[in-house]
Design a protein around this nucleic acid. Structure first.
Lengths: 260, 260
DNA sequence: ATCTGTGAACGGTTTCACAGCT
DNA sequence: AGCTGTGAAACCGTTCACAGAT
């Protein structure tokens, strides 16, 4: 009874994004010899609250035991399977600059379930280098090598200007999952998944909150009246179109602040 | 009229996370000499839909002109100010391994608004190295240097095992914004913001979707009946507690483990 | 007695569609 | 005519609180 049946059609994206967190916490517990864990303990280890954790796990099926908790090894297996980690995925890294090199060498990141199968670069000086036990191939061979080695995930670590064309090429070689480190919005068809990692965006988000905290310290909830004159006119006709290719005017050399 | 007054109380987190995207698209336009842009065009450039973009911008105030669009330079200024980029933030990178080195050298990422002010490492062989124009300092001096140079954002690029203690130390030096590259959940008080970048999590999310796509190809919506026997018994009493410190029983010839 | 699994309430985010300004 | 700004609706994710299993 209570046969499988449940889960199936689609685990919420938010849940998928947390499963790796649970998996990591569970692996730590397994290493320390923990056999069973309650939703409360696992939630703490993963940094979420326990109701959320239970709901997340309930999307995979009923893998817990009421009054007891979850069997650590069993849950590890179920989550791994759900995430597709019971098979090995071949990953290609395109762009072997500082970042690409770091990624290739980042032993831990390409852990169980993933295998760096190819490295590519356009620079002839770099092609042929031996990095993390792999030869750097020339970008011209991208499609052929990707197909031959069955690469299904591409990591783009090229300069921003090359990212879209690299993206187009890996897609033409059949890749439908891309991890993008270049600071550009890639355009891809609906059947291709792109995840991006963008350092400057993360920093900017932190800066926003940092600024809020700083403001709270000093002025308290300052609001209104917080910016340079010549502002309420909004666009006011002739300003528009006058700036040409000037980069950053900084319309009042300030150093603002604001609300909150 | 229509005096400021609006916005003020908190911009939604989801909006904050997109502002850097808009900013980047706008900077590209400014460089190409575009003076005015419609919500539709900017939305396309940023990879979002135009209603969302308009709502996002409306949280900052009414900076557009009906029937016309947004003034590019003016919007750049407003978003920059909102994000706190009109001041410079001093960033410290802790851990100068492959990744830390890549981050320090990643010219583009520390762009407008950010400045790498210090590099730290625990390895005596690395301390004293000159990277991206900076001396690598010993981790023992962390608190002192952070205070002296007014660092307000710390980037943790250490091994997982050291991340929490580094986190504690930067916090004790007054840092309240952390960008964490180590694959651990940092525990911090409420007034500290942590953002994490986790390569193995991103890959696992991609693997999940990749697996779904593969499944859809072949068997169509396969469901139920997809796992090895000896499973429906769930925890079944005596299995619990029997595993002691064994690491990985591996419930089906797969080969788990994971991240880092 | 304990702890999971889940309906129901809640809060935040996205999308729709149009009123209102230029 | 064109495009922004925004209520209202739809959607998704989280939290609450408890029924139900062990």
């Amino acid at each position: 009874m209570t046969r499988r049946m449940s889960q199936a059609r689609g685990i919420p994206e938010a849940t998928v994004a947390r499963l790796p967190l649970y998996l990591r916490a569970l692996n730590g517990m397994a290493e320390r010899g923990v056999a069973t864990v309650s939703s409360e303990d696992l939630a703490v280890a993963a940094g979420v609250n326990s109701a959320k954790l239970r709901k997340d796990l309930s999307h995979l099926g009923s893998y817990g035991t009421r009054g007891v908790g979850y069997d650590v090894e069993y849950l590890i297996y179920q989550i791994s399977r759900e995430l597709g980690l019971t098979q090995d995925w071949a990953v290609a890294i395109i762009g072997v600059g500082n970042l690409g090199r770091a990624l290739a060498n980042y032993g831990g990141f390409v852990s169980r379930g993933f295998r760096v199968a190819a490295l590519f670069d356009a620079d002839p000086d770099v092609v042929g280098d031996h990095i993390a036990g792999l030869n750097v191939e020339h970008i011209d061979d991208l499609e052929a090598v990707i197909r031959r080695r069955g690469v299904s995930i591409a990591v783009i670590a090229t300069p921003a200007a090359k990212a879209q064309q690299v993206c187009d090429r890996v897609m033409s070689a059949g890749v439908t999952s891309i991890l993008n480190f270049a600071p550009v919005v890639l355009s891809v068809p609906d059947d291709v998944d792109v995840r991006k990692v963008d350092l400057s965006i993360e920093l900017q988000i932190l800066a926003f909150h940092e600024q809020r905290k700083a403001d709270r310290m000093s002025g308290g909830p300052v609001m209104a009246e917080e910016w340079p004159e010549a502002v309420n006119l909004s666009i006011s006709s002739d300003v528009v179109g006058s700036l040409g290719s000037v980069r950053s005017a900084d319309p009042a050399g300030t150093g603002e602040r604001e609300s909150q």
